[in-house]
Each structure stands twice: as structure tokens, then as C-alpha cells.
């Protein structure tokens, strides 16, 4: 069960309170009635379903009721960030991705997630 930071409630809440709502940043065309078949297909049917960083919508349906967006790594399930609906699609840096991507096979031993000296912070 994921722990999801709701940008409106300003804290992490259990996944049970949320419902996924598909890919984010697909705007409904303002001239809906006039768009071409091809554009409608793209708008309604075609989704990227990336392996890696995905931008997705969630609704805090059993909480504040708000829809919001998240950038998440689809392999590790880890969230990079969540942000309010209507906010611009954030640029995700390599450092941010590296922090959430699953360790590759054969990766040499790295630092544990939190160091045993007490100084390390959780990733």
C-alpha cells in the first residue's frame, strides 16, 4: 500500500483514501467539437504508459476530494513529487530520477538508504 502525499492536505496519507485517475497533463481541447478524428484519437485513446517516470492523476476521493498530479517511477513505485491540479508539468532532474529508480542488476554496493552514523537522511 502506497503512501501518497496529498498536496492539499499537506501530508502523506494511505493509498486506501485515494483513487488513481490515469495519465496527467492531457488537456481537453477547447474546440472539442471541431477537432479531427486523429486528434480525438490522440486525446481520448492514446496513452504513453512509460516504463520509468510517469505523470499521473490521483484523486483523494476519501479525503479532501481533490484531484492532483504525481510524478512517479513506474518500476520502483516511488513518488518523485505530487503537485496540485493545474500546476505546470514539472521538469524532473536526473538526480530526482536516480533517487527513485530501482537499483540495477549488478549495481555495486552503494550506501544504505540511511547511514548508520545517524547523519544520513532517508531518500
Amino acid at each position: 500500500m502506497l503512501l501518497i502525499h496529498c498536496p492539499y492536505c499537506e501530508e502523506e496519507r494511505p493509498e486506501l483514501e485515494f483513487r488513481g485517475a490515469g495519465e496527467a497533463h492531457i488537456a481537453r481541447p477547447a474546440n472539442m467539437a471541431e477537432i479531427s478524428d486523429a486528434d480525438f484519437e490522440k486525446f481520448f485513446f492514446i496513452r504513453d504508459n512509460e516504463k520509468g517516470v510517469v505523470y499521473e492523476r490521483w484523486r483523494h476521493i476519501h479525503g479532501c476530494g481533490r484531484f492532483f498530479n504525481a510524478a512517479r517511477h513506474s518500476v520502483s513505485d516511488k513518488f518523485i513529487m505530487t503537485y496540485k491540479a493545474g500546476e505546470k508539468k514539472p521538469k524532473i532532474t536526473k538526480t530526482q530520477i536516480d533517487a527513485v529508480k530501482p537499483p540495477a542488476k549488478g549495481t555495486p554496493a552503494n550506501e544504505p538508504v540511511w547511514t548508520v552514523g545517524g547523519k544520513g537522511e532517508a531518500k
Binding site: P103, T107, A109, N110, V113, W114, V116
Partner: peptide
């Protein structure tokens, strides 16, 4: 937890290597 293991040749065992969750 999806943590990766490494093989400890000398002692013939797999031991924890890379943590994925916040654990030790």
C-alpha cells in the same frame, strides 16, 4: 522489499546489499 542481495563467497551466503525501502 525489493532490496538487492550480494553473495558472500567466503561464507557461502547471500547478505543484504542495496536497500530500496528505508530499512537497515
Amino acid at each position: 522489499s525489493r532490496g538487492k542481495l550480494k553473495f558472500d563467497e567466503e561464507n557461502g551466503r547471500f547478505v543484504p546489499d542495496i536497500h530500496v525501502e528505508d530499512c537497515a
